[in-house]
């Protein structure tokens, strides 16, 4: 799949994955990179940017095996941004589908 397609929606996907439950970096990186064929490392800078923008917060939690894990939690601001992203995405998706399908939208 075109890498440019993926880059545009990564923020939205990461936020969406944190909507259901808090998660740690490796978990997000692992499942997202398997789903949309990315390098595992791609997700980490995005998580860091989202944290800097206040979309997610972080905390450390002990794990049964190994050192404590850094968990990511979706903040209120992150939830609102995600809603907007999804709305924009659906609108955009509709228009693009129309264009590539050759239909006349409006």
């Amino acid at each position: 799949m075109n890498i440019q397609f993926k880059k545009g929606v990564l923020d939205m996907c990461v936020l969406a994955m944190l909507r259901e439950k808090d998660s740690y970096g490796y978990d997000i990186a692992d499942s997202l990179s398997k789903k949309i064929m990315l390098a595992d490392g791609t997700v980490y800078p995005i998580l860091r940017k989202l944290a800097a923008d206040g979309m997610v917060s972080t905390y450390l939690m002990e794990s049964q095996n190994g050192p404590p894990r850094k968990y990511y939690h979706l903040t209120e601001s992150g939830k609102n941004t995600l809603e907007e992203y999804i709305k924009d995405w659906e609108e955009f998706n509709k228009v693009v589908t129309g264009i590539i399908g050759g239909q006349d939208i409006e």
Binding site: G25, A39, D40, G66, R69
Partner: peptide, 26 residues
């Protein structure tokens, strides 16, 4: 931490490095 967790799944360090992607890009 990513390396450590991936190692627990039985991957080698070389394999993990490859999966992480180009270090310059990262």
């Amino acid at each position: 931490a990513h390396f450590e967790m991936a190692k627990q799944e039985g991957k080698s360090e070389e394999q993990i490095s490859d999966d992480l992607g180009d270090v310059h890009e990262l």
